[in-house]
Amino acid sequence: MNGRHWIKRKLLQFIAFGCSNPHLSNFPGGKLYEGKWKQFCNPGLNCYSCPAARFACPIGAMQAVSGSMDFKFSFYAAGMLLAFGVILGRAVCGWLCPFGLFQELIHKIPSPKRGLKKGFLWIKYVVLAVFVLLLPVVATNYMGMGKPAFCQYICPAGTLEGGLFLLGTHPELRQTLGSLFGLKAGILIGVILGSVIIYRFFCRVLCPLGAIYGLMNKVSMYHLEVDPKRCVSCQACHKACRMEVDPVKTPDSMECIRCGDCVEACPKNAIYVGFRRKAGVCLPDTEER
């Protein structure tokens, strides 16, 4: 892996993390930011109950509106996800998502590393359809209000970023701990252990945001191209890809997070990731590696 590329990407990921969670001074008191920016959606998965969070989680926002008494679908959240997706696709996951960064960092913990069977990749679409879109609308109380089912039953980001810190600073909340917290803590532990062993375990198996952005990889402006004239089918890009994507066979794979590791690995400079260029146009001559 190219050191400069790794440093550049980590730097941007940390900057994105800082932009998503700038209100660090809220942690000791367990307060939440209450300013006007909280109504706007973060591109990545970041719980709005995190004391440091500036923006709203897009998945939480989607469920909040669709579970409300007034509306059954959030055009605003869907529009924001569509906008992020059509511009960046799953590059949001690779460069901007705070929880993605967290998983990459804990994957560095020394342990046996494993791949992921392809069948597991479809689970996140079921999570999206059932927990994010369906349950907040159909599982309603007597007032017609639904709960954010993904946030309530699955999301480990909420447990990690919000639950642990807020339970530490709010003793009155600790008195209401029950089996639901046990379930969410168990999922968080499972995700952490999974991420240590499997690269970006949550992103690939459970994340509904990754599911949405992945669907838009085919049309996103930020895209990946392989120059067939330069490619020698050496598979260096496939071996370098930690999401187990073959960029030559599936440049628009729904699993590609546009991290650029394949670009760095290609000995023939045959891969481009970015906004410009059309398919089939030769990349500029540069010294081959």
Binding site: K38, A61, G79, C155, G163, L177
Partner: peptide
């Protein structure tokens, strides 16, 4: 279009109201 329509019909207020209060479901307290 979605963003403008959602904003015009008041969805931002719902999101803000949810986001500025501790989400008990999100933190595992139901």
């Amino acid at each position: 279009g979605f963003i403008l329509y959602g904003t015009a019909r008041g969805e931002l207020d719902i999101i803000w109201n949810k986001a500025v209060h501790i989400c008990l479901e999100c933190i595992g307290l139901g």
